[in-house]
C-alpha cells in the first residue's frame, strides 16, 4: 500500500453514534487500559461540536477514521476552561500534521465559544504529544506526580487565551525597578564593611 498523502484526508465534525466504534478502536490502540463506553459518551454526547475527525477518503467504511480529537468546555473555578480529553492519529498516518490540524480545529472552536484557557494532560514521556502541543504555544502548567497508573509523571499543559492587555502605569513601575536596581547596587554592603563585622564578631 502506498503511503497515505495529505490530500486523501478530510476533516469533519462528529455527527453520529455510528462513528463511535471507529473512534473507540482508534483511541484504544494507544491505551494500556480501555475507557468504558460511558467515558466517550460523556464527552461526545455533551460536546458533539468539540469532537472532530480526520477521515481517509480512500479507505473502506470500517477504517475510514484515521484521527480524532475529543474535548469538553465548561466552567472551572473562575475560568471557562476547555479540556482536550483525547487525541489520536492512526500509526500509518502520523507525522503528516493531522494531529496538529485536529488540535487547531478544536482550539479555534473553543476560542470562538469564549474559552479562557485550554488544558490537557499528557505523560512526561510522550515526546510526540508534548512537542505537538508546545509547538502550538501550550505551556506546562503543572507537573502531576505519578499521575498515570503506570507510575509515570504527567504534565498539565495549558494554553492561555486571555490575559495581559493594557497595563496602565507600567512605565512608572519600570522606572521603579530600575531605581530599585540602583539602590541595590548602592546599598549592598561593601566587602570592607562585611569583614569589619566579622572581625568584630570574633573578638
Amino acid at each position: 500500500m502506498a503511503p497515505p498523502s495529505p490530500d486523501q484526508i478530510v476533516y469533519v465534525p462528529y455527527s453520529s453514534e455510528l462513528q463511535l466504534p471507529g473512534i473507540m478502536t482508534l483511541i484504544e490502540k494507544d491505551l494500556s487500559e480501555p475507557y468504558s463506553i460511558y467515558t466517550y459518551r460523556y464527552f461526545i454526547n455533551n460536546w458533539p461540536n468539540l469532537c472532530f475527525m480526520a477521515l481517509d477518503k480512500t479507505s473502506s467504511e470500517s477504517d475510514v477514521c484515521v484521527g480524532v480529537i475529543i474535548c469538553k468546555l465548561d466552567r472551572h473555578r473562575d475560568a471557562y476552561r476547555g479540556y482536550i480529553a483525547m487525541l489520536a492519529v492512526k500509526k500509518e498516518y502520523r507525522k503528516m500534521k493531522i494531529g496538529t490540524s485536529l488540535v487547531k480545529m478544536a482550539i479555534n472552536a473553543m476560542k470562538s465559544l469564549n474559552a479562557d484557557e485550554i488544558v490537557l494532560e499528557t505523560e512526561r514521556t510522550n515526546v510526540g504529544a508534548l512537542s505537538l502541543y508546545q509547538n502550538l504555544g501550550f505551556l506546562r502548567d503543572k507537573r502531576l506526580y505519578r499521575y498515570y497508573l503506570n507510575g509515570v509523571d504527567a504534565f498539565r499543559l495549558k494554553l492561555f487565551c486571555r490575559g495581559g492587555g493594557n497595563e496602565a502605569g507600567a512605565g512608572s513601575k519600570a522606572a521603579s525597578k530600575e531605581l530599585e536596581d540602583k539602590m541595590y547596587e548602592h546599598n549592598r554592603m561593601s566587602d570592607e564593611q562585611e569583614t569589619n563585622y566579622k572581625e568584630e564578631q570574633q573578638d
Binding site: L136, G137, L139, L159, F160, G165, K173, S176
Partner: peptide, 24 residues
Amino acid sequence: LEYDNENIRFWNRTKMLRNLGSPT
C-alpha cells in the same frame, strides 16, 4: 508558536506573584 502571545504568557505565568501584594 502559533497560539503563543508573550504578553498573555507573561501575565499568566506571573499571576501568582501579582496576587501577593508584595513584593511589587
